[in-house]
């Protein structure tokens, strides 16, 4: 494995509307193919970190840097970060009426690669990816997330992950609100992504189910905007058993 970092977060502090910082001097170092897990109690700032890494303009970086493949992307717009190879699976994906799921993915693919999309090949790989996620084919033609159940929305996010195959993906509570079978299906998709792409992952989660089939390299514990502890994969099980008490 290359020693070169894929994503470096250096002393990153973030706030909204000039309020007190939500994140305090966060540091992360993620190498290609690694799986990092970010855990923490509600309101710790986990989703904020995901949004900030992806460039949501609502979250303002007050200090520090985000470096992706050696390039400082702290000030880059979200679309440019996606083009560089970053991806965020949303906790609450937006409903966009009038655009079908498949044409949205096609548009995104085209925007990222700049190359014309070969329709037949695209449809074939979309169908294959939907099969992995046990998604009914009819979802491809439905309006993006409109009227999707919570589970289908999350599957649609992982479908985009598989189709766009970024170098680095943040999964923001992709497993929350899903039943056991759906979590298994979604994690199968994530596993497939990692296998295919040797992609790096930052998984924000409360539970361990989504992690069962993945090898976790690092676990970070985020409390009140600070990373208070970093350990290996076994930390996940420990937290699962004892909660966050010892970190608070």
């Amino acid at each position: 494995m290359s020693e070169q970092s894929l994503l470096q977060v250096r002393d990153l502090s973030v706030s909204i509307d000039n309020e007190l910082p939500i994140l305090n001097r966060i540091n992360l170092d993620i190498k290609p193919g690694e799986t990092h897990v970010l855990m923490g109690p509600n309101g710790a700032g986990k989703s904020t970190l995901g949004f900030t890494l992806m460039g949501n303009p609502h979250y303002v970086v007050t200090e520090g840097n985000i470096i992706f493949e050696g390039q400082d992307i702290t000030d880059l717009s979200s679309d440019k970060r996606a083009k560089a190879g970053m991806f965020l699976s949303f906790q609450n994906p937006y409903e966009v009426p009038g655009i079908s799921l498949s044409s949205f993915i096609r548009n995104a693919y085209h925007a990222q690669t700049g190359a014309p999309v070969k329709l037949l090949a695209f449809q074939k790989s979309l169908k294959a990816a939907m099969e992995i996620l046990s998604m009914d084919e009819s979802y491809a033609d439905r309006d993006l997330n409109v009227g999707f159940s919570g589970g289908e929305k999350k599957k649609a996010e992982i479908l985009q992950l598989l189709m766009l195959s970024p170098k680095f993906a943040i999964l923001d509570e992709t497993d929350s609100g899903l039943d056991v079978d759906a979590v298994r299906t979604v994690s199968k998709g994530v596993e497939e992504y990692q296998k295919k792409k040797d992609g790096a992952l930052l998984i924000i989660t409360h539970s361990t189910k989504i992690l069962e089939s993945l090898h976790v390299d690092y676990t970070h514990v985020l409390v009140k905007g600070n990373i208070v502890h970093t350990g290996d994969g076994s930390l996940v099980d420990e937290i699962n058993e004892h909660g966050f008490e010892r970190f608070i």
């Binding site: 992806m54 460039g55 949501n56 303009p57 609502h58 717009s77 979200s78 679309d79 970060r81 996606a82 083009k83 991806f87 965020l88 949303f90 994906p93 937006y94 966009v96 949205f104 548009n107 995104a108 925007a111 990222q112 985009q160 766009l164």
Partner: peptide, 11 residues
């Protein structure tokens, strides 16, 4: 919604 689409590489 704009951020959601932009996060997929769309300007």
């Amino acid at each position: 919604a704009v951020f959601y689409l932009m996060s997929r590489g769309i300007t």
